[in-house]
């Protein structure tokens, strides 16, 4: 699970180690990456919204 989160974070940032990429493509399940990706995207949106609301005070 932690591996999947780390890979999704790397994808958000846009840089990934080649070794990790190989590993993900051989052992990971696509569904896990998609699910974690959706959840983390929602978290990112809420984070940005929270910052915006704080800044607008």
């Amino acid at each position: 699970m932690w591996e999947v989160i780390k890979s999704v974070l790397a994808a958000f940032f846009g840089v990934q180690k080649e070794r990790q990429r190989q590993h993900d493509f051989q052992h990971g399940k696509p569904g896990a990456f998609i699910a974690v990706g959706i959840v983390m995207a929602a978290v990112l949106v809420m984070l940005v919204a929270a910052v915006a609301i704080m800044a607008a005070r």
């Binding site: 940032f13 846009g14 840089v15 990934q16 080649e18």
Partner: peptide, 12 residues
């Protein structure tokens, strides 16, 4: 060479 993770992290 193909890639260099630390350089990529820096330029991002």
């Amino acid at each position: 060479f193909h890639e260099n993770t630390s350089v990529e992290v820096v330029w991002t």
